[in-house]
Design a protein around this nucleic acid. Structure first.
Lengths: 217, 217, 217, 217
DNA sequence: GATGAATGAGAATTCATTCAT
DNA sequence: CATGAATGAATTCTCATTCAT
């Protein structure tokens, strides 16, 4: 796990406190999403929540722990979507399409989490490295193996599945991570669900049969 | 332009100085690539170059200016590769393939620049916004229009070219930006040119005819 | 106004805090009085108060704001004394004498404020310029007009009242601003109230009938 | 003396060098006049001269020495004018009037020197103290004694001559030191010779017979 | 619980000065 | 002579954290 609940903070759960903590996590996620761990002062988070820095520290006495909680929260949602669904009856195409839509859905629902993750990776994954090895790599290897099986069975072409994943991860997360560039290019203030739908259509189509009309090869 | 040469610093060009400045820019790029503008202290850059913080400041008296120079250097290399090549005789497929390989080459040659760019975008492009609107968007629109022409001419399928670009940008830059995750997944210390070649092969293939063997639709 | 209460700092009033803040203002006034804004480090003020530099910054996070508060405090006391009193029944002579004594009293009570003001003026009044135009000049013009009326009415001689004020301001403030020179000349460690009384006697006498025994002219 | 010519700098006199040194002294005087010794960086002086900081340091390797030279230059001009002229035939009135005009002339010709002096005094005269005791105080005492003789002889009233000097010093120097305030009050950009003439007229008149029309006392 | 007070470490500059050429 | 290079000491301010109430 990235984040371990500190023992001393295991107080009686309290609705109001829980709600404030959730707001803090959300604000922290948003702040870390923009400027990463090092670039984000606690004060910026406190201000976003509308509480004093001291009060924030009262709830999260340690910046790294707060960051870990934010990461953990994202990872909890993410890890599941980073792997193919387990539906044994579904065709390869269906699983892949479902996968792409799921990843895009995640980027739409939790863009800040995606960016926090991106910062962490770009910084060399100092905190996440072990977690990725222990949690993500096994999933990844299993899914790569599955795709190789599909290829053998003639369901998909003989590609290198690793790069398929890298491409899909990048292409789906980019709508979260690079949203500001994308909306700038589209001349929009903000990306909407429609944009994500179009992205899903494009990606699933391209994955299915490419974009070239009559590829000679 | 992102960076304007300050008047005061227009000293006589000098080989030794130029070399040290280049080393500083490289070190700064590497540091900003990991932790972004806010998260990177000048000291870290100075240490990487092996000079004192004050001496770094002697060469670059202002952190933001140094950052702008780093951005500018990357952008100078990048912008050209962000647009289709101008070869009028080439087929759509060739142009696209050439484009993908060019972008991947860039990610291989200058991964730090790619990351600095990524940080800037994730932070809402505070410095780059105007530049992207004035320099990148026109290219982007021209290329989108060209792809629509190709589609009309039956050279490519009727896709949304905007999302093609977002996908290719993401899928090529990810080998720079997310290199640490990718090498972790592949169980490697570092990505090599071979990995980039495989990525190019995969991407061009997928773009050409998808990965599904016999797509019904 | 020179100083605007920053929104963030509007804490609950608290006796202990108020007292410390007053001590800080006094120490800052004393320090700025000697070496002006640019020449006074925050550290010097902190040391004078007996607190750490960081603690000083906790109370006054911004040097210029602290300086403005010091200026404001002095100005609040000063402006009133820079103008003739409003007593309609008093004679010109009485008003002038009262004015001189009031100004000298101020120099005696708040010599540091006078010096801070002097520094500001000698530096071209970068911060005070607007304030002087909007607050002091109207008073000044009113009093100049009044003196001209007195001259017409035969109460005082036909002098240029503007220079009367410049002289009185200078001659009264010099006992604050140039105290170190004056006490050096007098062979004293410090100026006492007695010295100010003598100064007042001298000034009022000279203003009344000059110092020449039988001026021909 | 305030400034001692350092031995190592006693190079062959050279016209060009002498001229540059004079420009430096003038620029330094102007800078110190505004912000005092502590508040003035060497760079600001270099910039005003139009040379590099290193080059300035080449000519004046030590800030305090440069400051002392500036002080010395002013003092050389000043000291003489701070004392009554030696004309044995002149009447008290003439000597006083001549004195006032001489001091005002100095303020007009060298306002920056006056301000540098003012800064030094307000800072407690750390450098000038000894000099003032050894050079100014004897003059001052001699002139005070002379005035007392005048008073005894019935040439002037029985005043306290010390305060006469403090007043005249202040009232004449204020046209240099507080020029920015005075011109602000007068609604002028700059003080002209005419203003100084009026000041001289006012001061000599007031000193001669006061400003009150018919002083009862 | 919540918050004001305090502080050590750090971060961006500034600044006087030294060194080498 | 003049200037580029380099640096230690300041200086303003930030920031995470501790302490006390």
């Amino acid at each position: 796990m990235i984040y371990k609940q500190p023992e001393k903070n295991q107080r009686k759960p309290n609705a109001q406190r829980a709600q404030l903590e959730a707001r803090i996590i959300a604000a922290a996620e948003h702040a870390f999403a923009r400027t990463g761990f090092n670039g984000t002062p606690m004060e910026a988070i406190a201000e976003a929540v509308g509480i004093s820095k001291q009060n924030l520290i009262y709830y999260y006495p340690n910046k790294e722990n707060l960051y870990r909680r934010v990461l953990q929260k994202t990872l909890d949602m993410w890890l599941e979507k980073m792997a193919f669904s387990d539906d044994e009856d579904a065709s390869a195409t269906d699983i892949i399409r479902h996968y792409i839509r799921g990843k895009l859905e995640l980027s739409y629902e939790n863009p800040d989490g995606s960016k926090v993750f991106a910062h962490e990776i770009m910084n060399g994954a100092p905190i996440l490295k072990d977690y990725l090895l222990s949690h993500l790599q096994p999933q990844f290897r299993k899914d790569v193996a599955l795709m190789k099986k599909w290829a053998k069975a003639g369901e998909i072409k003989a590609i290198e599945p690793e790069h398929f994943f890298f491409t899909i991860w990048a292409a789906t997360q980019t709508y979260a991570d690079f949203a500001s560039q994308i909306s700038l290019m589209l001349g929009k203030k903000k990306l909407t669900r429609k944009d994500f739908d179009k992205a899903a259509d494009f990606l699933t189509d391209m994955v299915s049969h490419g974009i070239v009309a009559n590829p000679e090869k």
